[in-house]
Computed example of a mutant assay.
Amino acid sequence: MLEAIGPWAWYGLRAVELRQTEDFRPGFVVYGRLRVPGEIFLHEQPLSEAASLRDFMRFDVLLHELGHHVLQHRSRKVGRIQRRSDHERFAEAFADRWKPTVQAVLDVAHGR
């Protein structure tokens, strides 16, 4: 999946980890998180509708967090930066931009 985007986006990325859900705030769902430098955590979710949830985590959450990584890397920040609404917009736009490309590459790889 990362190769479909290219090394410019994952340069400096050290890890993508699957983790158990953490309770950050009651009633607040956390799907993923970027921890600098270069670590993306994807949190477990309930097993209902596993295939659609897998695709959501892969195509939306991972790409969104990768967008935060790209923004962090571009700004050359080595420590944590405070998230602002423009950071979230950038991460969403990044995910929206790359989702069709990644889906197409994975479809070809799986013979679809």
Score class of each variant (00 low, 15 high):
Arg74Tyr: 08
His73Phe: 03
Phe94Arg: 07
Ile81Ala: 15
Phe94Gly: 12
Gly67Leu: 12
His73Cys: 01
Leu71Ala: 09
His87Pro: 03
Val102Gly: 12
Arg84Ile: 05
Ala95Leu: 08
Asp96Val: 15
Phe90Leu: 03
His73Lys: 02
Arg80Gly: 05
Arg89Asn: 08
Ala109Asn: 06
Ile81Gly: 04
His68Val: 09
Asp96His: 10
Arg97Phe: 09
His73Ile: 00
Lys99Gln: 09
Phe94Lys: 07
Val78Leu: 07
Ala91Ile: 11
Arg76Leu: 07
Asp107Ala: 14
Arg74Ser: 03
Lys77Cys: 04
Ala95Asp: 09
Asp96Lys: 11
Arg80Phe: 06
Val102Asp: 08
His87Asn: 02
Gln103Arg: 06
Arg83Pro: 03
Arg83Thr: 03
Phe90Ala: 03
Leu71Phe: 00
Asp86Arg: 06
Phe94Ile: 14
Ile81Cys: 09
Gln72Met: 04
Phe90Tyr: 14
Asp86Ala: 06
Pro100Ile: 08
Leu106Met: 12
Arg80Pro: 15
Arg74Asp: 07
Val70Ser: 07
Glu88Leu: 10
Glu92Ser: 13
Gly79Ala: 04
Glu88Ala: 11
Arg76Met: 02
Thr101Ser: 07
Pro100Tyr: 03
His73Met: 01
Thr101His: 13
Val108Ala: 15
Glu88Phe: 13
Ala104Val: 01
Val102Arg: 10
His87Val: 04
Asp107Gln: 09
Val105His: 14
Arg84Cys: 07
Lys77Met: 02
His87Gly: 01
Ala95Ile: 05
His73Pro: 00
Asp107Val: 01
Arg89Lys: 15
Ser75Cys: 01
Ile81Arg: 11
Lys77Gln: 11
Gly67Met: 12
His68Phe: 04
Asp107Glu: 10
Ala93Cys: 11
Gln103Lys: 09
His68Trp: 04
Trp98Gln: 00
Ser85Met: 14
Ala95Cys: 08
Ala104Cys: 00
His73Glu: 06
Val70Gly: 06
Ala93Val: 00
Arg97Met: 06
Lys77Asn: 00
Glu92Gly: 08
Trp98Asp: 00
Val108Asp: 15
Leu71Gln: 04
His68Met: 03
Arg74Glu: 13
Ser85Phe: 07
Arg74Thr: 06
Gly79Glu: 14
Gln82Tyr: 02
Phe90Gln: 04
Glu88Ser: 11
Ala91Lys: 10
Val78Asp: 05
Arg74Gln: 14
His69Met: 05
Val105Gly: 08
Ala91Thr: 12
Arg89Phe: 14
Ser85Ala: 15
Phe94Ser: 08
Asp96Ile: 07
His73Arg: 09
Ser75Ile: 02
Asp96Gly: 11
Arg97Cys: 05
Val78Phe: 04
Thr101Gln: 15
Trp98Tyr: 11
Val108Gly: 05
Phe90Ser: 01
His87Tyr: 06
